[in-house]
Amino acid sequence: MSSPLLEIKGLKKYFLRQQAFWQKWTGKKEYIYAVDGVSFSVNKGETVGLVGESGCGKSTLGRTILRLYEPTAGEIYFDGEKINDLRGDELLQLRRRMQIIFQDPFASLNPRQTVEKIIGLPLKIQGMKGRELSERIDELLEQVGLARVHRKRFPHQFSGGQRQRVGIARALAVNPSFVVADEPVSALDVSIQAQIINLLQELQEKMGLTYLFIAHDLSVVSYVSDRIVVMYLGQVMEMGPAEEIFSSPQHPYTKALLSSIPRIGKKNPSTGRIILEGSVPSPLNPPAGCKFNTRCFIKNKPAACFHEPPPLIEGAPGHYAACHLLG
């Protein structure tokens, strides 16, 4: 077992809800509990998939790990070093080692800059200049499957897939060892999606990258990940090896999630399907106890579900689930 490259312990990120001016005096504060006590680790060279419905805090978690958001509580260790309180130069050094690929290739590239400038910026910040810089840009473009002629073009001249390639090149410019891929293929068409997934895997092999792969599409996550973390309302519901999560899900939420994926070519798609009622509760006011209790399909739940948050219990080696019924 290789050592964990990234380890987070009890990570929390609350956002203060925007207040009306009079609430300053009444002192009433409302928080959005985006990430609410998440612990897991990512080993060197592996891909950890992070799945969950929209609003479950998976993107916030990814950004908090990169220190793009300040964590409210908890600890983040990167390569054995605590990175919660890094500032200035130290933070800059850290950014060289961890990078992010964003979801929307239309919004995350500056429309007024050429590809050359976009990819060159992180390199310039890290102090690269002149010939060296120019050669590195060429090298990066080639790595992601673009040509030299694309250097002087603007983002709008590219298709969605090519734009995502530019985003990948920018993330890889500083030779990071850890990359958070925040829904990198969600905005793309199926055929292009497959191209980008293959590119990401190729790059992982070549450069020994470690990915935290955030996505809501379970089939994509199952394809790329070694381990999977299932989140719901800011908390981990289940995590474990990818095969196990898909072959023997433990938590009711994971079961429902897996059974709601539309299957291609199945004769009777609705047989044995668990359809969850309602939608995800607001993270402003999450339910007490188990966060999933409002939608849980299990009848005759024990009272603990409504009072106590269930702990993550290791059912099989490396396979954890947070449910009172599994203890």
């Binding site: 298709s159 090519q162 199926v190 497959a194 293959n198 898909f246 291609i264």
Partner: peptide
Amino acid sequence: QGILASIPRLGEKEYRIKPIPGNV
């Protein structure tokens, strides 16, 4: 055929997806 080959199959790790090259 290309579309079907580029969709990852759930729980089948050995199955490699084959993207359609190029763009629309």
